[in-house]
Amino acid sequence: MFEDWEERYQYMIDLGKDLPLIDNQYKTESNIIKGCQSKVWVHAELQDNKITFTADSDAIITKGIIAILIRTFSNQHPKDIIDADTDFIDAIGLKEHLSPTRANGLVSMIKQLKMYAIAYQTQLN
């Protein structure tokens, strides 16, 4: 998809800058995703049976990564989020971030988004 790491990272950085920011009232301690070296806040809302995610991070590359996730997962039915596989991460060249030991916590982020979906799915049932 990208020629080299620089283009890929520049793309993530630019995505991070465009990330729809979380409303400040949701930037709380309890909305912080654990397992990231930088701070990541995620907020989820259910409207018309679909989840909308907003997020923020104090690190821009992390923000780019979460922007990609939100693009994929936002405005989806909870069940589709729960069932979504994460192969697309490989396809866009973010695989190196998938290791659970990476300090950016991509794995924790996906887990958190899916947790929200499970919670809302329970409400819908």
Binding site: A59, I60, A103
Partner: peptide, 21 residues
Amino acid sequence: DIHPYDVGTILDKLGIAVRTG
């Protein structure tokens, strides 16, 4: 006001190992 994690990530891509955090 760039986050140290961002700087460390780019440096790593350049083969430079530093600690961030």
